[in-house]
Design a protein around this nucleic acid. Structure first.
Lengths: 197, 197
DNA sequence: TAGATTTCATCAACCATTTGGTTGAGAAAA
DNA sequence: TTTTCTCAACCAAATGGTTGATGAAATCTA
């Protein structure tokens, strides 16, 4: 039962650590608290991951993997490249919005590690290039730059949501939630910005 | 000489604290290090600001004030609302890019405090509304939302610059630096996105 | 104005608590 | 019986915060 238990516990540890690192930042996170939340002895963390930093790397890696897997599994919309682009943008945003912890972790990762958002960007780049091939996306658009803009629009919003909410909100009671409106506006801005006229 | 000295030291403290908080996050920042960098006794920090958090609030307030002052002093471009909008976008980005410490501090502030980027957004809202009045900005554009998008595009980039750089960079040697290209692309995206057709 | 006193500003030395990390030993598999 | 896993107790270092004392202005007093 050790293997099973081990695995289960390792998962619990990663989950707890993800939450803690996301909420409190690497420096702010307390190893003790992670252990308690995972219902494990603190030493187990060091046994598995050697150090706080090692644990964080594990969390980061798993978060990146999760993101990549989720993006790969997104439903492929139908229609032309522009419509598919819009669909992918919406789906990516929805996923990121549902997993703010991943966003927080990965955004921290950028300081130490390589780009964990790369798969998300790549996906967009492909669609944009495809659109250019079909003459539906303007040729003077740089797919990489535009894809990165789209990502920043999504990730940046999720990190600054309270700023946006605090400064923008004359929003009627029945209006769609700010987040939904953002999603639509961002997807629209990108698509409209690259569409060949 | 006490008043002068006090003031000078207070300034040094704020400066040092801004740098430290920006680089290492509130939790990661070490009071000791701030004191050393400001060449003051550690206790002086507590004498002035009572606690680490208090010091951070002071830093945050001063950063917000600095941002507001700088934005107010931006040169007003000439031309129609759209051109002025583009000018303001460029100028705001330039300023924020030159003061990454302010960005880092203010972005942290959002978790605890009210929106410190509000003045920047307001400025954009005014221009957009003006453009709508003149029929140069589409009526279905929500000025608040669009202004926030522009801000996220700028601030988000500065926070995720390494991600963007790591995932996008097939950039030729003589091309303008990534940051410059981003500035232009972002300003263009926003302006083109709202312009009445 | 000289002196007394109160207030402001500054510091070195401390301190209680918390932190990441160890130790050594015992279960449980293999 | 060797390897893998788990834990309670421990520890040195660091951290935010405190104490008590001391120049030096500013304020008051005679």
């Amino acid at each position: 039962m050790s293997r099973k238990l081990n695995n289960t516990r390792a998962l619990r540890i990663i989950a707890a650590a993800t939450a803690e690192f996301a909420k409190r930042t690497f420096e702010g996170a307390r190893v003790d608290q992670i252990a308690r939340a995972a219902r494990v002895n603190k030493q187990l963390l060091f046994y598995y991951y050697h150090s706080k930093r090692g644990l964080f790397q594990a969390v980061l890696g798993q978060a990146a993997a999760e993101l990549e897997a989720a993006l790969a599994g997104l439903p492929t919309a139908t229609g032309g490249p522009l419509q598919r682009l819009q669909g992918v943008l919406r789906a990516q945003f929805d996923f990121l919005a549902r997993r703010p912890d991943l966003v927080a972790i990965l955004a921290q990762g950028n300081r130490t590690d390589l780009a964990p958002f790369a798969p998300a960007i790549r996906r967009l780049v492909v669609l944009l290039a495809e659109g250019q091939g079909l003459g539906q996306v303007r040729d003077d658009v740089d797919p990489h730059l535009t894809a990165a803009q789209a990502l920043v629009l999504m990730v940046g919003y999720l990190q600054l949501e309270s700023v946006v909410a605090a400064s923008a909100p004359p929003l009627g009671a029945d209006e769609p939630a700010l987040r939904e409106r953002w999603k639509e506006a961002a997807a629209h801005l990108v698509v409209a910005g690259v569409a060949a006229r």
